[in-house]
Structure formats: C-alpha cells, structure tokens
C-alpha cells in the first residue's frame, strides 16, 4: 500500500484554535478537510508537512446561510450537501448540479467546498507517486527543474 509520511496531528474545534494551530509552524503545515485530495497527495509525497491540521471538526465552518446580500457557504459544506440543499438548488441550480457531478457519492460525502476551491490537483505529471515522478526526472512543480505538459510535441515547458 502507499504509505502516509509521518507527521503531527492537530484537531481544532474552533476557528480560533485553527488559526492558532496554523500559525504554530508556518510553511510546514497542511490543512485537511475531507482529505479526498490532501491524503492522496500526502501518499504521493507532494506534501511533507510537519503538522497536519484537520479542520473537519470546526462547526463554525459548516453552514449554508441564505441572507439579504446573497448565499453564504461555509468552507466545510460537503459537495453532497451542496448538491441537495434546497436553497442552492433553487437559487444556484448550476452550482448544485456541478457539485453533484463531481466523482462518486463517497467522495462527495467527504469532499468539501473549501477543499474543492483549494485543490492541489494539477496534471498527470504532478499528481503521481514519488517513484513515478523520480522516473520522470521530476517536474518543476515538485522536486525538479523542468516543467512538463501533456502535448508531447512541445513537451518541455508548461
């Protein structure tokens, strides 16, 4: 199995605690919400943080609020909630539809809106295992000097 690297683990309950945890080790910290993107990336050694801050338990970020000035969505709203929320479906049907089309039901149950917006999925050269990237000769975005892109004819720069 692909292993996770070793790291320390914080589970804040409030936004305040979260900010405190994040400022603890700037530059060596990774936020994880649903983990559908962050966990594979950890396994691929794209991130090697000293501290992982799991924000899944921060209640304050789990809301859908219909207000005068528009719809407010918390970062921890899951894609499944977004897809089935009556107000989102009524007022922003394309958003609800898009959320409902992402991946499969399990991933939509875990995946959050915040995570979707801050996603670190880039391309088939980057989102690969450490071994595969070493065989590629690495890439500018992680561990390497050259940048790759998909078109083979102009393969060197992206």
């Amino acid at each position: 199995m692909l292993t996770l690297p070793s790291f320390e683990w914080a589970r804040p309950r409030t936004v305040e605690e979260t900010l405190a945890a994040l400022s603890d080790r700037p530059g060596e910290t990774l936020v994880v919400a649903g983990g559908t993107d962050a966990v594979p990336n950890l396994k691929h050694r794209l991130h090697e943080p000293r501290l992982v801050v799991h924000i899944g338990g921060v209640r304050e970020l789990q809301f859908v609020r219909d207000a005068e000035d528009g719809l407010h969505l918390g970062a921890l709203v899951t894609l499944a909630e977004l897809a089935r929320h009556p107000v989102v479906r009524r007022d922003f049907p394309s958003l609800a539809r898009a959320a409902g089309l992402v991946a499969g039901p399990q991933l939509r149950n875990m995946g959050t809106l915040g995570g979707n917006l801050c996603l670190d999925t880039r391309c088939t050269y980057y989102n690969q295992t450490y071994f595969w990237r070493s065989a590629l000769g690495y890439c500018l975005k992680k561990d390497g000097a050259a940048a790759w892109r998909r078109t083979p004819r102009t393969s060197r720069r992206c």
Binding site: T124, T129, W132, L136, G137, P152, S155
Partner: peptide, 24 residues
C-alpha cells in the same frame, strides 16, 4: 511516454486507476 529530456522512453503514462480509465 516517449523519450524526453529528463527521462527515457517507456515510462507508463499513468499507472493508477485515475489515469487508466476502466468503465464503471
């Protein structure tokens, strides 16, 4: 993948079930 600067030919295009698509 064909040969390119940085690596030789013969690297699997994407050895994962994300890149190698099988129908669901």
């Amino acid at each position: 993948k064909p040969e390119a600067p940085g690596h030789g030919a013969g690297l699997h295009h994407g050895p994962s079930l994300l890149d190698y698509r099988i129908p669901t």
